[in-house]
Amino acid sequence: MTLDAVILQVLAGLATGGIYASLALALVMIYHATHLVNFAQGEMAMFTTYIAWSLINAGMPYWPAFLLTVGIAFILGMFIERIVIRPVENAPVLGVVVVFIGLLVILNSVAGWIYTYTIKSFPSPFPRQPILGIHYISAHELGAIGVTLAVLALLYGFFRFTPLGLAMRAAAQNPESSRLVGIRVGWMLALGWGLAAAVGAVAGMMVAPVVYLDPNMMSGILLYAFAAALLGGIDSPGGAVLGGFAVGVLENLLGAFVIGNELKLAVALVLIVGVLLVKPSGLFGRVYVTRV
């Protein structure tokens, strides 16, 4: 285990960590607004990545296709909230979980139906050669980290400095009072779903060149995103991002030096169960106290 190898693994871990961070952020956004964990988040990202693939294959240049896909994902997310999730908003947890799993299954099978289950390659917008003469990290990995950070900055700016972002935060924190001051809480939730779907789409398009495109590509990544969101605290956006990078680095280091690549998903399982047992609120989450 040389220093070079460790640096290599840490940087590669940061690159995948960025993807976990994006997906974890999407999960946290939905959790924050509705206190639900979206099991279909990974499949939503997978489906929108297929849409990007179709656009690119139809001859569209990469970046316009990228932006168009993010827009489509946003609309798709809003639609899903309005049509599928709305009716079970106040249903018992089991009903909600079943609906989410149903959504996961439908998206997975529809993608398989339209695009078949054969693995497809997905283009990366970044050059093949490492840039700036850094040989530790490929251009795509560096680019993925950059895109993740850009998305984070945009979201932070949106929630912190725009009236709409403020309204969305208000709706999540105190729906009743928000309604009284004229915020349309239902639409804010739909917007939150749209944003989460858009962030997920970015994550999907960034990870697809690495893991290749197939309908089941997201199941492992979703598991790591769960672990990241829980580690950071499921209601803390900043925590989810840090958790994502931490989990990515941890996964790569453990995979390379300790347990090998075969048990990567088991690492996620242990992380999830471990965090839930030791510190259910995560590193940066709020501790909720309920009165019984």
């Binding site: 599928v84 009716p87 079970v88 249903a91 009903g95 079943v98 609906v99 799993i101 149903g102 959504l103 996961l104 299954v105 439908i106 997975n108 099978s109 529809v110 398989g112 139906w113 289950y117």
Partner: peptide, 18 residues
């Protein structure tokens, strides 16, 4: 289709909850 059983499962899951 190969994917149809799963689509049907998904629709039934959501449909039964509603």
């Amino acid at each position: 289709s190969k994917a149809a059983p799963w689509a049907i499962f998904g629709v039934f899951m959501i449909g039964f909850v509603y």
